[in-house]
Design a protein around this nucleic acid. Sequence first.
DNA 1: TGTTCGTATGGTAGCGCTACCGTATCGGCC
DNA 2: GGCCGATACGGTAGCGCTACCATACGAACA
Lengths: 355, 355
Amino acid sequence: MPKPSRSSARRVRDVVTIHDVAKHAGVSPMTVSRVVNGERYVRTETRDAVLASVRALNYAPNQAARVLAGAEERKVGLLYGNPSAAYLGEFLLGALDECGRKSAQLMLQKCATDDDTIERAVLRKLIKSGADGVVLPPPLGEHAGVHALLREHDMPAVAVSPGLPLTHCSSVRIDDFRAAYDMTRHLMDMGHSQIAFIKGHPSLSASGERLRGFEAAMREGGCKVQRAFLVQGYFDYRSGLDAAEKLLARPEPPTAIFASNDDMAAGAVSAAHRRGLDVPTDLSVAGFDDTPILGALWPAVTTIRQPVAQMAERAVDLLFKEMRAKRQGVRAAFVDHVVEHSLVKRESVAAPRRR
Amino acid sequence: MPKPSRSSARRVRDVVTIHDVAKHAGVSPMTVSRVVNGERYVRTETRDAVLASVRALNYAPNQAARVLAGAEERKVGLLYGNPSAAYLGEFLLGALDECGRKSAQLMLQKCATDDDTIERAVLRKLIKSGADGVVLPPPLGEHAGVHALLREHDMPAVAVSPGLPLTHCSSVRIDDFRAAYDMTRHLMDMGHSQIAFIKGHPSLSASGERLRGFEAAMREGGCKVQRAFLVQGYFDYRSGLDAAEKLLARPEPPTAIFASNDDMAAGAVSAAHRRGLDVPTDLSVAGFDDTPILGALWPAVTTIRQPVAQMAERAVDLLFKEMRAKRQGVRAAFVDHVVEHSLVKRESVAAPRRR
DNA sequence: TGTTCGTATGGTAGCGCTACCGTATCGGCC
DNA sequence: GGCCGATACGGTAGCGCTACCATACGAACA
């Protein structure tokens, strides 16, 4: 007989264990363990029966026991460069949530992207402190050096928001092309045809995708894109302000400015105000990202919302799949997960005034 | 004989266990456990010997084993209302860091503050999911309802950034009075005497402290504070903009505006720009908090920096002390931890133009 | 002198889970 | 039929730690 059932004095909360499930399903604890961990060599009927018992008893594995028994990775590294604090905050919310569900530990590690030796040191630190996988929010998700280092250490990783799917790493992203396309269509639907575009940082592929989406929508809508209406920006407030200044100083300024992100859109609004222009009466402005803080500005900026928290959750989830695959000696196929964006209409866009 | 020493096939990394320490110190594992956990009933000499061995072997307790053995709290709840994403982000950084050091799990829980029934539900959820203590960033740290609920459940908690120490709960904060005082002195040192103040949300005691600090510095510097130069704000961009509009519309407007937080300072800058005033040439603006995103605006706003991440770390640390005290049936004394703020001088403040 | 108590330590027995190995069954193939 | 591999399970033995109890000793009582 295995054990005289449950009667330990110290057990206070009466949690359901793997033994309870095993008894309920009429199998051994080992089989339950196998089912719960998605291992092979379990008949479908057995698996179903166990899963039914799991649901019936509302069983949840004890993570501490899992770890102690020498299985189950526990630490997820989050390597971040210099995203805005707001982005990072929302990202953390999602990542933490998923890590909580999985009872994993989230380890943050800041990483300057301008020096390769630093990256090396940072990553070593992450590995040393026991990380079993890494999530890479932008812009690190596209950093070749970081990826090379990760592969060197055979460390599973998931990139968030690269502009395009990666060949050597799973990714979670929105369809930047489509999103920019949608926004441009919205501006045209509102009656704009003289639309300027402030490009994003050239090192990120998302910038290119957004530009392509803009151009495609314009072309499709029969609007010619003037060369002068495409201005380079770098994703920060200042560059948006400078770009908008340049645009508004033209003899025939645009009626709408579509900035590749919110910070630059805020800069554009500021530039308009300096010139005594009202937004949206004299100029419509659209952004991209739905940075929380900008929703509080006035006028609130129409933008594309990325479900950042949800994306972070997905990224952690994917990462776990890869970490598990790695332990079992399998190489998981890389996944490219595209989540839905949405267009958030606010006060900064209106129909253009007649000229 | 207890066990044939270490030779299990599955053990890969050769970690030092409590048994190794025990052998090294010539005591039983139990005694080591007691020392490590700071329990009573250990002779000082024994304790010292064990601690020496711990250091010598570089022993670190296995958290999973601790939890499985039925001890050691593991989950810290973080109940947040509606702080800015940036604040929350930095707060999370610190809290997560400390939780990592303690191998604790951080559980986030959003909580709307406008409905008591929601609070109740939220807190229940937090307790149900196994939280052993709660950290309360502003504004929840001063929410009477939340505190009442927490006490009802005998749940340890630490409040961050109340304006004044709390009587029934530990707190981590900066000296808001002193900080506002310092900023006001700085403005006066730059030559300003016509300084307006945008007050913070009246429900937070920090607002009152900041106002008092401002008034004290003004009085001490021999400047009379005009009634009309104290305007109510609510910590958001819009209220700062409105308040500044009102101030700048006066026949004799102030030469400097000190806003109780950065969002309102940003609003004030915007209001100035709308009126065609240059910052800082025509108007100096100072904020409070050092919200990261505002450092990227232009002109960068002079502000008071709160070490938010560090404060979060301290809060988690304090919380652990209280949780441990609670398990051992002791009621810990409430601590009021004041950390240093600093004055960040940026472009938005300059000497006033002569009138 | 026994009987309490408070102090200081050790031994035992798990916590819930999985790595590892053993066994049993089922084809397929010589 | 006999052998082998793949599949499908079960049993055992811990992972490292602490709750709980037992013990041992001195001091403080009656």
